[in-house]
């Protein structure tokens, strides 16, 4: 992304606007007045030492935890009153730090569940199997297969997700998340547990997803991946936002260095 692109992106309305988020767990301030915004189309790295509050931030953006204070504006809408599934429908998807696939279901079925908010067959549809139900099902399967093709998992489409190696499961989570046609995709440590080759492939996949116009937030401990792929990086430490800027700016930031070197 050139500087000009970046400036253009910044002039647009942000897709995600986080304002003063605070979350307490007992006495621990897992989030302390976090604010930032993300422009559409970019990849935003989110880094920070263990326990910094990265996953907690994702859980609040996706509506799983309610913040104690502050708010999240997604695509111009305040998400405070929205339920998790409504947020997914509005266009927020995520993957999990620890793989959370539906282990006994096949990969294809996992992706189909990811499409839940974009399909509508309910109880009566299932029982009557009207033609529209079959059409919807067929279209869904085709789309799921194309997603598996896109992520390179098509060979395993009919294997139970729980039987796959970790690397493929991690990718499968991305496929499942993409199935809901997200505008914003939150990736929580997608490279954890991957070897060098797999990490390389993952980088390419993330770029391909970006080319599809999906905005991403990426939590990553692998610095070369995070810095290489992000347009913008936010650093959290002990629940506070430490710094924000381009990867280059962050790499030269003293406060960040101190936090990472155990300051």
């Amino acid at each position: 992304m050139t500087n000009q692109d970046l400036r253009q992106a910044q002039s647009q309305q942000p897709i995600l606007d986080v304002q003063g988020l605070t979350k307490l767990f007992g006495g621990v301030k897992a989030q302390d007045n976090i604010s930032f915004s993300i422009e559409p189309g970019i990849v935003c790295g989110l880094i920070g030492p263990n326990g910094a509050g990265k996953t907690t931030l994702f859980n609040m953006i996706t509506g799983i935890y309610a913040p104690d204070n502050g708010q999240v504006i997604f695509n111009g809408r305040n998400t405070r009153k929205m339920a998790v599934h409504q947020l997914v429908k509005a266009g927020i998807a995520r993957t999990f730090q620890h793989v959370e696939l539906f282990g006994s279901m096949t990969l294809l079925e996992n992706v189909l569940v990811g499409m839940h908010v974009r399909t509508r067959c309910g109880f009566w549809g299932a029982v009557t199997r009207f033609p529209w139900v079959n059409r919807e099902e067929k279209a869904a399967v085709e789309k799921a297969e194309s997603l598996l093709e896109f992520t390179g998992l098509i060979d395993d489409a009919h294997k139970p997700a729980g039987d796959l190696p970790v690397g493929r499961q991690k990718t499968a989570e991305i496929a499942r998340a993409l199935a809901s046609d997200p505008l914003l995709l939150l990736l929580d440590e997608p490279a954890a547990g991957l070897n060098a080759v797999e990490t390389e492939n993952l980088g390419q996949l993330i770029r391909a997803v970006k080319d599809r116009g999906v905005t991403m937030m990426l939590v990553e401990h692998d610095m070369s991946l995070a810095m290489g792929i992000s347009d913008k990086v936010i650093v959290l430490d002990q629940g506070r936002k430490l710094a924000q800027g381009t990867p280059r700016e962050i790499q030269n930031d003293e406060a960040v260095m101190a936090a990472y070197l155990g300051g």
């Binding site: 279901m105 569940v113 990811g114």
Partner: peptide, 28 residues
């Protein structure tokens, strides 16, 4: 059987495998 094979059934089996994950991918 029809329910279990349908979209609704897949969502149900997803809850069975992991309720939190099912919620997070958009199952009400």
């Amino acid at each position: 059987r029809r329910i279990l094979r349908s979209r609704m059934g897949r969502a149900l089996r997803a809850i069975h495998d992991g309720e939190n994950a099912a919620l997070a991918v958009g199952v009400n």
